[in-house]
Design a binder for these strands. Structure first.
Lengths: 115, 115
DNA sequence: TGATTATATAAGTGGTTGCTTATATAATAT
DNA sequence: ATATTATATAAGCAACCACTTATATAATCA
């Protein structure tokens, strides 16, 4: 039998509330596949930049994502060291992959690449 | 590798939003252990009856729970035939069991028993 | 039948949320 | 230095949400 470390209701319900928004759920779904910067998310979600930034701020505060600055871009990725990561991960297995949306960005030449 | 049937973002985010409320998360957590009627939940949660009823209405509308009338009581239980049940179930494994709260009710003689 | 018990519903309200527009900060390029 | 690009923050606002109180519905009991 598999044993899972439990999260307290307070913290867990906050994670669920945050993922209970279609936009944020899609963002996290995208980030499960690869890290993204804000401007890529703006493009994919067809939303305003401030709106996306505000969502990222909430996801970061809940330790669902981490950020990394690279030049003028800030890349967000899933925080897989977080206490809430196991919960986030097992939730996301129930949603379709968003890979093709990122592929679509690449085809349009809008992917931010900086290595 | 384990394959999971995916849920669309629309439906899934609704489930997450509903479970993103501390009260409802606790209710579902309780129901994972055993069915309960409204008056039991009122006792355990120390909330008003209309408030609990309104939460149950939402959980039922999202097919997270089912109801069963027995005399004057209405018992709610997890809807394990629902499309969203796999998601609900895997979320709930991350939260502590609520068994002792139901045990507490029994000790106080407040458990509704009707067989 | 009338009283009691369990539950649901309706209406009102204060707090929260997700967007908008405007502006600030910060890195890069010319 | 100045302009451009990327991101964050602030303020305002309409929609939503979880509670409250009051009332309705429904089953049981005396």
């Amino acid at each position: 039998m598999t044993t899972v470390n439990t999260i307290d209701v307070e913290k867990g319900s906050m994670v669920l509330k945050l993922l209970g928004d279609k936009t944020r759920l899609t963002i996290v779904s995208l980030l499960m596949y690869d890290e993204c910067c804000v401007c890529e998310l703006v493009e994919i979600l067809e939303m305003s930049q401030p709106s996306v930034s505000q969502h990222m701020k909430k996801l970061k505060a809940a330790e669902i994502v981490k950020e990394r600055r690279q030049g003028q871009w800030i890349f967000y990725r899933i925080n897989n060291e977080s206490e809430v990561y196991p919960l986030v991960k097992s939730i996301m297995t129930h949603f379709p992959e968003q890979r093709e949306k990122i592929k679509g960005l690449e085809l349009k030449g809008l992917r931010v690449c900086c290595n």
